[in-house]
Simulated scan of single mutants.
Amino acid sequence: MEQFLEFAVNNWMLVTALLALFALLAWDSSHKAGPKVSTHEATRLINQNNALVLDIREKADFKAGHLVDSINIPNSQVTNRIEELEKHKSVPIIVVCKTGQTASAASKALKDNGFEQVYRLGGGIMEWTNNNLPLVKK
């Protein structure tokens, strides 16, 4: 650790450039996948803009509890089943996963296929339940 600190002090411009590159990479990745929305913003999009909720969790997790009228396409199948969503290109799509971490890949796949209004639910279904919002259980 001492050597690292000595290196960082002696090469502060290099370390700063590396940190800036990491920040740009993180920004670029989140920009390509679409913006995160809070549970409040997601509710507004659903109620006012008839947003479609795409739940990318596995079928068993989906059956245990999901948002009303959401569509379940597991994350591993999104790119293969994207044609099922073609009729929803004109409405906002909110991608939901368990914790908000895996929604990026599915969101990016949608954006790459011409879906312009793609959002990711920040915190995923766990944030939804932490805010005591309703789930449908089948």
Rank of each mutant, 00 (worst) to 15 (best):
V96G: 03
K63P: 02
A51M: 07
K87L: 06
L24C: 13
V53D: 11
T39I: 01
L18E: 00
V53Q: 11
K63G: 03
S76E: 15
S38G: 00
K87P: 03
L18V: 08
P35W: 00
P74E: 15
T99K: 14
V95A: 05
V53Y: 11
S29P: 00
G100Q: 12
P92C: 06
V15N: 08
E58T: 10
H31G: 00
G65T: 03
A33Y: 04
V78P: 07
R44V: 12
L25E: 15
E41M: 10
G65E: 02
R44K: 12
W27Q: 08
Q77G: 09
K32H: 06
W27I: 10
A23S: 14
F22P: 05
L21M: 13
K59A: 14
R44Q: 11
S30P: 01
V78N: 06
H88F: 13
A51D: 09
I93M: 09
D69N: 14
V53N: 10
Q48H: 13
T39C: 03
I93C: 07
A20Y: 05
E58K: 12
I82A: 02
S30W: 04
A17Y: 02
R81E: 08
V37A: 01
F22V: 14
I46D: 05
E86N: 09
V53H: 11
E84V: 02
Q48F: 12
P35L: 04
A20I: 14
L19S: 04
E41F: 06
A23P: 07
K98S: 13
A20Q: 02
A20T: 11
V91G: 03
G65K: 04
A23I: 14
L54D: 09
V53E: 11
H40D: 10
K32D: 04
V68P: 00
K36G: 01
N75P: 10
V78C: 09
F62G: 04
V91S: 07
G100Y: 11
E58L: 13
I93R: 04
G34W: 06
R81V: 05
K59S: 13
Q77M: 15
P74H: 14
S90E: 05
A20M: 12
Q48M: 13
N72M: 15
R81F: 08
H40W: 01
V37I: 05
L21S: 10
R81S: 07
L18S: 01
R81N: 07
V68N: 06
G100N: 11
S90K: 15
L21A: 13
A20E: 02
I71C: 13
L18T: 02
V78Y: 06
K59H: 12
V15R: 08
L45N: 10
L52P: 07
K98A: 13
L67Y: 06
S30T: 05
K59W: 11
S38M: 00
L54P: 11
A33E: 10
A17L: 04
Q48G: 02
E41Q: 14
I82Q: 01
R81T: 04
G100K: 12
A23H: 11
N50H: 13
Q77P: 09
I93T: 10
L25T: 10
A33D: 05
L85Q: 02
Q101W: 13
A17P: 00
L19P: 00
V15W: 05
P74D: 15
S30E: 15
L54M: 07
K36M: 03
V91E: 12
R44G: 01
V78M: 09
L19A: 10
